[in-house]
Design a protein around this nucleic acid. Structure first.
Lengths: 136, 136
DNA sequence: CACTGTAGTTCGTAACACCAACCATTACAA
DNA sequence: TTGTAATGGTTGGTGTTACGAACTACAGTG
């Protein structure tokens, strides 16, 4: 069956990407999950703990410690939510922002040579297909 | 820059795949890393601890515990290497083999609906591109 | 106003991954 | 060939990650 091979290819690719992300994260003392937090928070202004947990696919309790550690390092900050006094918003601090863009730049640089083994046309095709797949 | 978007797409896709693998692994009491061990060992006969560690990108010491736990569950077994008395070979037991094929079947089933949102032609194209990228 | 649900935190537990230190064996060099 | 370095694995200690259960504080609803 052909789907098997595609699944395999997706899994293998995942491992390659994940390895790069982990390595570059580690060089900056960031776990893969913390990297994801940064990736998510980089675009948006602020996010509630619970929605962040949902996006990451984590339990709320897992997120507390994660944010704790990042907050102690001054990369992230908590603020009470204006609308809901139970809720807590999380946002990147300026230094967190800076780290995020730097690390994601490094990731792109690290993957570029690997990606460039594919002709430009194929790169565009791949990009197109992946985003089609990722559509909601 | 277009590479950025491709890197992003690859990362996003990785997270989706990883989430599926983790979930299905968890349902079978297997961590993502154990799942990878099974995937690697499924094809080959037996592997030395060190080469397995290399393939996984792990320290030797990390592998010891990993294999310990799998061995205690009877999924994997150690055997002294014939050529090198220092080395230890690892292989799936029959019950490990069975679990491996079952779990990887479940993964394929889980991803199929997601993948099938892409027309068959696009699936083949994607598969082709990914494997081109994965070439050594 | 009581009651049920939701948002986060804390606590205890287990897996995971690393490093450093340690044997045993192998490879190599003088 | 014998001494020394390198390799293969394990052990022990540490920090991170993730979970579930129990808990507090606030929201929403009847």
């Amino acid at each position: 069956m052909s789907t098997d091979n595609l699944v395999d290819g997706l899994a293998q690719t995942s491992f390659v990407i994940t390895a790069s992300l982990s390595r570059i994260g580690a060089e900056n003392d960031l776990s893969l999950t913390q990297l994801r937090v940064f990736g998510i928070l980089r675009d948006r202004e602020r996010l509630r703990m619970s929605t962040l947990a949902d996006l990451l696919g984590l339990e709320k309790s897992s997120l507390s410690g994660l944010v704790d550690r990042a907050e102690q390092r001054g990369l992230v900050e908590r603020a009470p939510n204006a609308d809901d006094k139970r809720a807590v918003d999380v946002a990147l601090t300026p230094s967190g922002q800076e780290l995020a863009t730097r690390v994601y730049g490094e990731v792109t640089e690290a993957l570029r040579p690997w990606i460039d083994r594919l002709p430009k046309d194929d790169q565009h095709m791949l990009e197109h297909l992946l985003w089609r797949l990722l559509e909601p």
